[in-house]
Design a protein around this nucleic acid. Sequence first.
DNA 1: CATTTTATCTGACTAATGTCAGCAAAAATA
DNA 2: TATTTTTGCTGACATTAGTCAGATAAAATG
Lengths: 291, 291
Amino acid sequence: MPQTDIARIRRFNRAVTTETGALDQSFLGRGRPLGAARVLNAIGPEGRAVSDIRTLLDLDTGLLSRLLRGLEAEGLIVVTEDEDDKRRRVANLTEAGQQEYEAYEALSNARAERLLARHPHPERLLEAMDLIASALGRDRIEIVETDPEDPHAQSAMEAYYRDLSARLSMGFDPAKAARLDASDMRPPRGTFLVAMADGLPVGCVGLKGTDKGYGEIKRLWVAPSSRGLGLAKRMMQSAETHARAAGITTLRLDTNSVLPEASTLYRRTGWTEIERFNDDPYPDLFFEKRV
Amino acid sequence: MPQTDIARIRRFNRAVTTETGALDQSFLGRGRPLGAARVLNAIGPEGRAVSDIRTLLDLDTGLLSRLLRGLEAEGLIVVTEDEDDKRRRVANLTEAGQQEYEAYEALSNARAERLLARHPHPERLLEAMDLIASALGRDRIEIVETDPEDPHAQSAMEAYYRDLSARLSMGFDPAKAARLDASDMRPPRGTFLVAMADGLPVGCVGLKGTDKGYGEIKRLWVAPSSRGLGLAKRMMQSAETHARAAGITTLRLDTNSVLPEASTLYRRTGWTEIERFNDDPYPDLFFEKRV
DNA sequence: CATTTTATCTGACTAATGTCAGCAAAAATA
DNA sequence: TATTTTTGCTGACATTAGTCAGATAAAATG
C-alpha cells in the first residue's frame, strides 16, 4: 500500500479518535463513569434485557451486574424479571433515567448537528459517513424478511424510486406501482427482504407471488454506499431460497437497460433473457430463471 | 436535524468506535496496557519531548512519568535531558523499542490495508476519509511557510497539476513550469505556503518575487476534501501579508476560466481583471491587486 | 425426575487509570 | 540577585475496569 494511503487512513483515525475522545469527555461531564453512561445508553427508552446489554457492550457478567446495581441505586433504572423466562431480567429507565438518557442523547446530537451545520456540503459528509460505515461493517449487513409496509421497507423503496427516476429520462410515477402489489409481497405468496446495516436499510428486494405460474422479482435496490460488496447477489440468492420454499419453480423479472449492472448480474447468475411478458412502460429487458 | 441524518451519524459513530475498539484489542494482544502502548506510539522513531507527549495524549504528569518509567524498565525507551533546556526531557526508542513500535505500526497498517483491499473502490473510501477528517479537524488546518522543494510542497503541487490537467482539455506539461520558478518562491524574494491538516498537505499557494515591479501569486490549490471551508481565502490573505512584508506593493496572477471558483474568489477579494501580461499558453484571465 | 445448561448475582481480587500534594532543579522574569 | 514559573519526579490514594470462582434459581434436556 502506498505511503500516502496509509497516511490518509492514519489521519482519519486520529481525527475520529480525537472526536470520540472529546465526546467521552463531555459524557464524563455528567458525573458518571463512562461504563455506567454506556449501559444507560444501551438500555434506551424501550428498555433492554440484561443479556442483550452484555453482548452489545461485551461486558463481564459481574461487571455489568454491578453497573446495573449502581444505576439502580441512583434511581435511574429498574430491573425486573422477564415474564416468559424468569431467569432473565430486563432493565428499564425510570422517569429520572429517561431524563439522563436524553441528556446524553442531546450531547451527542449537539456534536453531530454542529458538525453538519458548519459543513458546506452536509449531504456529501453524510454520504462519506455512510460509505465508511458500510466499509467497516460489511460483514454486519443482515438480510431480514420485512413487511413491505414497514418503515424500513418503505424508505428503501422510496430510495429505489428516487434512483430510478434519476436514471430514467422519462417521468416516473412511483405511487401507483407502489401500492398495487404490497399484498403480493407478503408470506405465504411472496416476501419482501431488506438488507439492514446496523439499523439502517441499505438494500431491498421483493418476491411477488402471482397466479400466472411464475413468481416475480421486484424492486432490487442497493444503497450507493453499499454497492460493489456483492449485496445484490446475496439478496437475490435469499429471494430464490424463499421462492423455492413457497413452491415457486419459475421466476421472472423486468429491468431497464439504463441499469447495466443489473442485467450483468442477472446474466451471470443463471437468468436468461426472454420476450416481454407485461405491458409496464418502464422496463425494456425481461428475464426468467428456474429455481 | 432530520431523524434519518441523526441515524446515519449514529451508525457511523458505532461503526468507527467498534473499529477503534477492535484495534485497541489487537494492541492489548502485545501484552502491554493501552496507556503504555499509546505512549510508545506517541514517541515514535524520531523521539519526542516528555512535555509534548503530555499535551498530545492529555496525560497527568504523574501518570506519564510512571508510564515512561515502565517502558524504560522494559528496555524500550531511554529518557535523556534536553540539551537546550535542562528541565525538559526527551524520550527516544531503543533498538527493542523500535521493534515494538513497528509491531504496533504493523497491526494498524494491516487493518488499514485489509479495509482498503476488500473495498471495491479504495480511492472512493480514501476520499470519504479525507472528507471526514477535514470536517472534524477543520480548525486544525495550519498554514505553514515551506520550501517549494519540500516533499509536502511537492506533493501539493503535483496534486495541483493533476487537477489542472484534468480540467484543461489541452495537454499540460507541468515539469517544465515546475522547475522554473522554485527559487523565486523562497524568502526573501517570495514564499511558498502549504496548508497542513494533521500532517497532510491540503492546500498550497506560491508567492513569486520578480524584477518587474510586481509579485506573482502562483499555484493556488485546495484539496477536494477541504473545499468550501474558506481555505483559499485564508491562504491568499497569508500570501498577501508575506508580500507586504517583502516590500511588494502590486500583485498579479493568471488563471483559467475553466476554474470559475478561482476568478470569483479573486473578484470578491479586491482583485481587478487586467490585460494579459505574459505569454504563458494556459491562462486566459489575468488579475492585479495593490496590497 | 435427575441432570445439565442458562442467566444473573455476589465476593474477593488484580490491574489500570486518574488525581493531588509536595519536591527539586532549571529557566525566565523582575 | 531574589522571585516566580516551568518541567518532571515521587508517594499516597481513589476510582474505574476487568477477572474469576462459587452460589442460586429457572429452564431445557435426556
